[in-house]
Nucleic acid binder design. Structure first.
Lengths: 408, 408
DNA sequence: CGCATTTGTTAAAACATCTAACAAATTAGG
DNA sequence: CCTAATTTGTTAGATGTTTTAACAAATGCG
């Protein structure tokens, strides 16, 4: 039951019904391809005539293409299969991180083309845009020379005003109220440019991925644990944006208001317990109180190193991971109680130790989840190798073509 | 950008466009009444011809009625005003609370008819339904004899499965997995019966209230502070339900995981800091350590009594309220960071002391809100005299007629 | 080969929005 | 009082949908 907003509604016009049905057909072609017109008619519970019209239009718009004829072992005319048409144009996905920036080129349906490239992130916005322009053009000329770029998606580790293209606050990059959209438009000309917070983009990447098991969840949360904690919430197939596009900041919901100081200025945020720096400082803090000699430079010691040590039976490393696991679970319980999603995805370097930490995470969730059902929530692990941020950035460009039209 | 769910979509049929536009027209009549067809056409940015057809259909369905002719001081034919037709049928709103149950009768657009009645709540479900049947029939015969009852809305202080009508867990009533829908249907026959959690219902009541200032917010949170803490979240005009209809339980998000024990079994939940019992025990705890004689029976001492004492310069009462105010604000900051709503509504007995506690609440919010904008959030106080729970219960019955049709 | 069966298209019916014209009702102003 | 101007609300027809029904095309089976 959704209330119509009397100050922002959208009237149905002659073309609205067709628009809706075309998007449904496109969605089903995307999730069921290869698929024939007749099969589509059965899936949509409508007549084949209607499908003919809809598909003809999708063919004209080059969103869909006809492929080989199917070969079913029954009588009757063979079906002509329909596929998404990926050759139309190209999307550029950019993942801006504190140390390096990553670029991925995809086709118009988000499939990776060529290799992912990366280069050092210049922290001055102007320099960053300049070097980015160089790298993007180089990548495009190597991977897809002469292709039409449909749009670019940027993922930023911080708060972003999705509409104005202003980076409100990205502590890792030391950017505050930086208008990135303007210099980017100057550099790349008149192509669509989308900016989004990394947690939200990761959530998008999961929603728009067609899973092999055909699962299609429209209520999920993505938690990305890294230098900070990014969270993206999807409700009813739509990213939860909030009034200022800052919704989803569960990383700064406290575990204990008197806990350790957080980068945001407050105390005891979830992030201050489970971010990679927090886990590392827990490890070294304890080590140092034990006055053990440090064999490596602390500054270069990463969470991956800690996980390796934990696997080789460094009990202190294991303890540090277990603590993080427990705090991770306690915070997840807050999200579960607050949002009650169908599934939670977890990304970040920590996932490489999932086999070690899962039992502790599960125990902590059960400790605070309000009901047994909530405690048994499905958790999906997204390894770094799946590049959720880059795929989310690509989805910013490629997904709108498949989205439901705004109506009522 | 909303993703279409490939396993639960709704095709547009011939009637879909009309259905959408009819609901938009109905919504605008509701928010702008009295309003003429011509004015409606301007509001909807469509032609008058279309409006004629839509309104004729609404008139036939008796959702709308024509009223007196308008009197504008300009040339031209006088407009015939349109109004919502409230005489169609009747809704029964029921607010089930630990000690007493309240009944309100409303017309089909949620306006109160007659007086609100109440009776002691029997904690055995069968006895409860029996006495409820008696009281409802009595109220109906007094207030609206012979009227057709369109439906009944029940508000329960606990978790409810909105679809099956099962009360999953209502600690205050000591109900666990109680199927209320079945005995209610036996008692009242074949009328629509809706059950909902009190926090969600209160949020609904705010969404569907037409405010005098014309404000129409579709992203709000309602926080109800009473024996427990109930929270309802509305995003994009729709209640956030979650997979198990338990979303919104911010009352059990912790302020400190090692804090005071909560009725849910965990420690340090927000509820354990700000519920009325928590505030009272803070007051008496401190009083008792000071070994002051107690002039009243603690068991009968309510939060209202405490507020009266605070107003008469009982410094300990004031301190207890200020502590609660601070914790209230800290928890609100979590909601603000997580949801970023346009407005937060606060209900419950505590609101009677809002002038005392507001500055402390505001300070605490600013302490943990991630941005300045978030710290300046609009807060609305809903006094008990507005009966948000009963109005929410009524909305469960009356609102669906105005909701957007499900599409795509 | 003829028949059954499936796929995909086409023609026409039914039903929307939308444009344009028109009737009805009222005021302004000589 | 009368006419022109103006606004409201309806109607007729144009256009663009979905939907039904019929049909052509393609294929396997006996």
């Amino acid at each position: 039951m959704r209330k119509i907003n009397p100050k922002d509604f959208k009237l149905a016009t002659r073309g609205t019904s067709r628009g809706i049905n075309k998007q449904i057909a496109l969605t089903l072609i995307r999730t069921h391809q290869p698929v024939s017109r007749a099969e589509l008619a059965r899936l949509m519970e409508t007549n084949r005539a209607n499908i003919t019209f809809l598909v003809n239009e999708l063919l004209e718009e080059k969103l869909v293409r006809e492929g080989a004829q199917g070969n079913q072992k029954i009588r009757g005319r063979k079906p002509t299969f329909l596929y998404l048409n990926s050759q139309k144009s190209i999307a550029v996905a950019v993942d801006v991180r504190a140390s390096r920036t990553f670029i991925m080129i995809t086709d118009s349906i988000g499939k990776q083309i060529g290799e992912i490239v990366n280069f050092p992130t210049a922290l001055e916005p102007d320099k960053f845009v300049q070097s980015l322009g160089h790298e993007v053009r180089k990548a495009l000329s190597e991977v897809a020379p002469g292709a039409i770029v449909d749009g670019m998606g940027f993922v930023i580790p911080g708060m972003v005003d999705h509409n104005s293209g202003v980076v409100l606050h990205a502590p890792a990059l030391k950017w505050k109220n930086v208008n990135l959209l303007e210099p980017l438009q100057q550099e790349f000309g008149a192509i669509d440019i989308h900016l989004e917070n990394s947690g939200k983009a990761c959530a998008l990447s999961q929603i728009w991925t067609t899973h092999s098991d055909g699962s299609a969840l429209n209520d999920i949360v993505f938690v990305s644990v890294s230098d900070g904690v990014g969270v993206g919430v999807v409700i009813n197939g739509e990213i939860m944006r909030g009034k200022h596009n800052t919704a989803g900041e569960f990383g700064h919901v406290p575990l204990s208001i008197d806990g350790p100081p957080c980068s945001c200025g407050a105390n005891g945020c979830w992030e201050a317990y489970i971010s990679n720096p927090a886990t590392l400082s827990r490890y070294f803090g304890r080590s140092m109180t034990n006055r053990q000699p440090q064999s490596v430079d602390i500054a270069d010691f990463t969470i991956e190193d800690l996980i390796i040590r934990a696997r080789s039976n460094d009990s202190k490393a294991l303890t540090a991971l277990h603590s993080t696991a427990r705090y991770l679970g306690l915070g997840l319980a807050s999200i579960i109680n607050a949002v009650d999603p169908s599934r939670i995805y977890i990304g970040g370097e920590l996932t490489e130790a999932w086999d070690i930490i899962e039992p502790h995470v599960r125990d902590a969730i059960k400790e605070r989840a309000l009901t047994g059902d909530l405690g048994r929530i499905s958790i999906g692990i997204v390894p770094a190798g799946e590049y959720p941020r880059l795929r989310g950035a690509a989805a910013l460009v490629t997904a709108p073509a498949f989205a439901a039209p705004k109506v009522a």
